[in-house]
Design a protein around this nucleic acid. Structure first.
Length: 550
RNA sequence: GGCCCGUUGGUGAAAUGGUUAACACACUGCCCUCUCAAGGCAGCAUUCAUGGGUUCAAGUCCCAUACGGGUCACCA
């Protein structure tokens, strides 16, 4: 029995050849240097920050070179697949403005001529390519049971041999095709394994776009390519799909480095050109025990991309953060090009850090604060509105009904050379400035200090405050009031002997601030009072009185 | 255990083999200021995981060791 007979026995329905598929999925007609990349997640839940970074980089390099970025769903493991999670992945990408050129676009739809882009829909293709491998002596059926494999492993442990299915340990590698055929006809379950032609004593090397040359012993493991249910494993599907979809750069996590020799052996077996591999370092975190480990979707809320959406970090800010940890020259480039966007930056594989990066929320917060501080009040209003529409309906209504007021509020200390940086995410807005809305200013909640006095405050509102005053006049009146009640207007004098005074001007301002905002720190007090309006001020004055008398 | 990748301050990191190891974030102190944010100034690695070697000269090249990570599934 020939290899071809065996292949036909296993795959009786295969009618096409791999050459047919070469014609069905022709070379892409793209301009010189165009890079084709993909994001190929398993539908096991939502997108991990590390995956977001991978897809972001993949998208970026495709865009930079007028190439293609597509989404492929790797759902070959039924056990791990979670229903409807494809939509979750698409939503996460959409939320972060990572738009795909082709591939899966919804739970049921896709676009592009290199599809299907969902692996479980590509069975016919995989069958054909597996047929080819068997026919050409690169693969064979293996009938090992779990127990047999376990025994092999135990023997290898005793002999201190390398663990795995290879060489003389590969029990079914060299039995005749007739024997294989008869086992198949007896309905003995089997998998298809690679028939490795590699030699562990020899070296293969490949150029990794991030790390440069990486050298390995050749692969000599007869790894499983096709599971007993005829569904391929990653190694096989990756090689077939990425070739047929004409991917030029395989951008993936560094956990794949070790299996790259298997992939190279497969590319060679099919006579496919070998794409460029780009293995990215992982995003890490220091856990409670001080140990550096991969950011985990289960244990770390910040691992899930949806977390950033819920907190209200601007998409752009997260992108800026991902870019600063991905390309080491990005931050300096930004500094030198303050008016350019991330799209103008040319991504460079050589500037990717080789080691795993510790996730740094402080850096993200800072980037986000700077980003938000540069937004116009109108844009920020829209963003905050949109955020609350999804996460805080009541506040959303409040913001919607007070548009002009909110924009004025957001404008305080904004359109100036050194704008205020107190908001790091949209969620912060309510926390920081909610007191500006009567609906949220329900009660005073602060510790009373000796110099807090209703009388002074009443005097201030009745006799010193005028909404028409400009800022200088406003402040000189506060000073006047201060002198009347023995608040020191000279900071140096006050520092010399505080006991002579009730407090200094800061103290007086604190009293006013606390009474009308219930906070000890707010944006510019003059602007705040002006915006609050005299009615609100009087209302809060009464509330303050009640609070003092409690 | 085998194989592979990595290791510069609290964090991200820069540095054709060549003076005092950039910069950013964080932190600390001071100044300014009605508070906070911002801003200004200053501080923060006696040294690039450790030990050898090559060299007039090493963070940079070589070797060994240590540590961290990955991988060795009918998971991806």
């Amino acid at each position: 029995m020939t290899n071809k007979d065996l292949a036909s026995l296993i795959y009786p329905d295969v009618t096409k050849t791999i050459e047919d598929y070469e014609r069905i999925y022709p070379q892409r007609q793209l301009k010189e240097g165009a890079i084709v990349t993909r994001f190929a997640p398993s539908p096991t839940g939502f997108v991990h920050l590390g995956s977001l970074r991978t897809s972001f980089i993949a998208k970026k390099v495709a865009e930079d070179t007028c190439g293609i970025f597509y989404l492929r769903i790797e759902d070959t493991d039924e056990k791990r697949s979670i229903e409807n999670s494809v939509q979750g992945i698409i939503d996460d990408l959409t939320n972060f403005n990572i738009n795909i050129d082709e591939g899966v676009t919804s739970q049921i739809e896709e676009k592009g001529i290199y599809g299907p882009y969902t692996q479980t829909k590509r069975q016919e293709i995989y069958d054909t390519f597996a047929y080819y491998l068997i026919e050409n002596d690169f693969a064979y059926p293996c009938f090992c049971t779990e127990e047999e494999l376990e025994n092999i492993r135990k023997r290898q442990e005793v002999r201190k041999d390398r663990i795995g299915y290879y060489g003389d340990y590969a029990k079914y590698r060299n039995i005749s095709n007739d024997e294989k055929a008869s086992l198949i006809k007896k309905n003995i379950p089997y998998v298809i394994r690679l028939k490795s032609h590699g030699d562990f004593e020899k070296k293969v090397s490949f150029i990794d776009a991030v790390r440069g040359k990486i050298e390995f012993p050749e692969n000599d493991m007869d790894t499983i390519l096709i599971k007993s249910d005829k569904i391929p494993v990653y190694h096989f599907a990756h090689v077939v799909d990425d070739h047929l979809m004409r991917t030029t750069h395989i951008i993936r996590g560094e956990e794949w480095i070790s299996s790259t020799p298997v992939h190279i052996e497969l590319f060679n077996a099919f006579n496919f050109p070998i794409p460029i591999f780009c293995h990215l370092g992982l995003i890490m975190k220091i856990d409670e025990n001080g140990i550096r480990r991969k950011l985990s979707k289960r244990k770390d809320p910040e691992a899930a991309v949806s977390f950033y959406h819920k907190e209200g970090y601007p998409v752009e800010a997260l992108k800026l953060y991902l870019m600063t940890i991905s390309n080491s020259n990005f931050e300096i480039w930004m500094e030198n090009n303050p008016n350019k966007s991330i799209n103008d930056f040319k991504f460079d594989f050589k500037k990717i850090s080789e080691s795993g990066t510790l996730f740094d929320i402080n850096k993200l917060i800072n980037i986000s604060k700077v980003y938000i501080s540069k937004l116009s009040a109108n844009t920020l209003y829209d963003d905050i509105l949109l955020y609350n529409k999804e996460y805080d309906k009541d506040f959303y209504e409040l913001l919607k009904n007070n548009k002009e007021y909110t924009i004025s509020l957001l404008n305080i200390e904004r359109n100036i050379p050194r704008p205020r940086k107190d908001i790091s995410c949209y969620k912060d807005f309510k926390k920081e400035l909610g007191f500006m809305y009567d609906e949220l200013f329900l009660s005073h909640d602060f510790l009373l200090k000796d110099f807090y006095s209703y009388e002074i405050l009443e005097d201030y509102v009745k006799n010193y405050y005028n909404i028409e005053d400009d800022k200088d006049l406003w402040f000189s009146k506060i000073k006047e009031l201060g002198i009347k009640y023995n608040f020191c207007t000279d900071n140096k004098a006050y520092k010399e002997d505080p006991s002579l005074y009730k407090g200094n001007i800061s103290s007086l301002c604190e009293l006013i601030r606390v009474a009308f905002t219930s906070r000890t720190n707010t944006p510019d007090l003059y602007e705040i009072l002006k915006l609050l309006n005299i009615d609100t001020i009087n209302k809060r004055l009464q509330m303050f009185k009640e609070y003092m008398n409690k």
